[in-house]
Simulated assay, not measured.
Amino acid sequence: MRIGLGAAVIVGLAVFAGLVGVAYEQVGRFRAARDFPPPGRMVDIGGRRIQLDCRGSGSPTVVFEAGQSVAGALDWSAVQPKVAAHTRACAYSRAGLMWSDPSSEPSSAKQVAQDLHAALTAAGERGPFVMVGQSIGGPYVVSFTRYYGAQVAGLVLVDPSHPDQAARVAHYMVEKRSPLSRLFLRLGWTGLLRVAAPRLLPRMPHQSEQEVAAIRAFAPLSFRTELAESDATERTLAEAGAFRELGDRPLVVLTAMAPYTEGELHGMKITPAQGKQVQALWKQMHDDIATWSTRGTHRLLPNAGHDIQFDEPDAVVDAVLSVVRQVRALSPGPASP
């Protein structure tokens, strides 16, 4: 009898804690929508809305594609305003990130390209575009060029993923999310992620407190999409790798060359010596990407980590504006495929 009563008390407390967590999460979502309205506008792309923030004026229009993160358009907060002082500049949040509605379609490079193209078209934004992608955003903008190349006049790839990276560095790295961490990320509805967000998402250099607070407020929903994109990485890279011909479009590839931190080495389960070998391979892969265009250039940043747009935002701005100038100097027509 006592055991049964004790078990009932434990179950009751667990149910009560769960209900409190659910209520906490729902209140958090309400406050997120109330306190952090989307920058720019919400664009309807056929029953779903995509958050799109376009600023400035001039041609070509620069379009920013974030890497694999939960920050969406805010990943470019240290770069976009400076570019917008010289030309039209658009940042957006992919489906399911920050303010954007989720998609029922599986995550893929083609789906990302279609969503972005639909949002730009619905918002009245027209090419020529200079596409800027960081990390997995690199393959995303290359895929956009594959499907909508007539509108793409130039590209900037910020420490981009390479289609062959898994095969090239697989024997060095075994970084994978554990089943426990996956379960944790799927429990956003319980309020656990909202409580953990400040620890999981530290403030980056050049980020305002308001931006950090917004990212953390939407994180429980955004984490779900980030996990789906992570699971689709192999498919995304394979799809993007089928297109490596950027013609004569101006292209700048930026590579982060700062030594890996202890935390990064621990996460990748490699030694400092192996870290140097991985970086050497990373540079070689970026050398390769730069050859995808006859106007490709490759710049190394010895003091920047993977998130170059936060570590050295001015280097990204300089690269983007250099491509903008090249596009303006070329004929007004689209670059040849």
Rank of each mutant, 00 (worst) to 15 (best):
Pro179Thr: 10
Arg55Thr: 13
Gly47Cys: 08
Phe36Trp: 14
Gln134Thr: 08
Ile10Ser: 02
Gln165Asn: 12
Ser230Pro: 04
Leu13Val: 14
Phe64Gln: 06
Trp292Pro: 11
Glu239Asn: 01
Ser331Asn: 08
Pro205Tyr: 00
Thr87Gln: 02
Arg299Val: 15
Glu25Phe: 04
Leu187Phe: 05
Arg41Val: 06
Ala150Asp: 14
Met268Val: 02
Ser103Tyr: 10
Leu227Thr: 10
Val158Glu: 10
Ala258Pro: 00
Leu187Lys: 10
Pro38Tyr: 12
Ala118Val: 08
Leu97Asn: 06
Ala273Pro: 02
Arg182Lys: 14
Ser104Met: 06
Gly275Ser: 07
Ala273Glu: 14
Pro332His: 03
His86Tyr: 06
Lys269Trp: 07
Arg186Gln: 15
Ile45Leu: 10
Pro139Asp: 07
Val156Gln: 07
Arg2Tyr: 00
Ala240Tyr: 02
Gly267Ala: 14
Met268Phe: 10
Ser208Trp: 07
Gln309Thr: 02
Val212Asp: 01
Asp231Pro: 11
Tyr140Glu: 00
Gln284Met: 07
Ala150Ser: 12
Ile10Gly: 02
Leu116Asp: 05
Arg2Thr: 04
Ala91Asn: 03
Ala7Arg: 04
Lys110Leu: 13
Ser59Trp: 05
Gly18Glu: 09
Arg126Glu: 13
Pro102Ser: 13
Pro60Asp: 06
Ala304Phe: 00
Asp35His: 11
Gly154Cys: 10
Ser103Glu: 07
Leu237Val: 02
Met173Asp: 11
Glu175Ala: 15
Arg299Gly: 03
Glu209Pro: 04
Val15Met: 06
Ala150Arg: 06
Gly333Tyr: 01
Arg34Ile: 00
Leu246Phe: 06
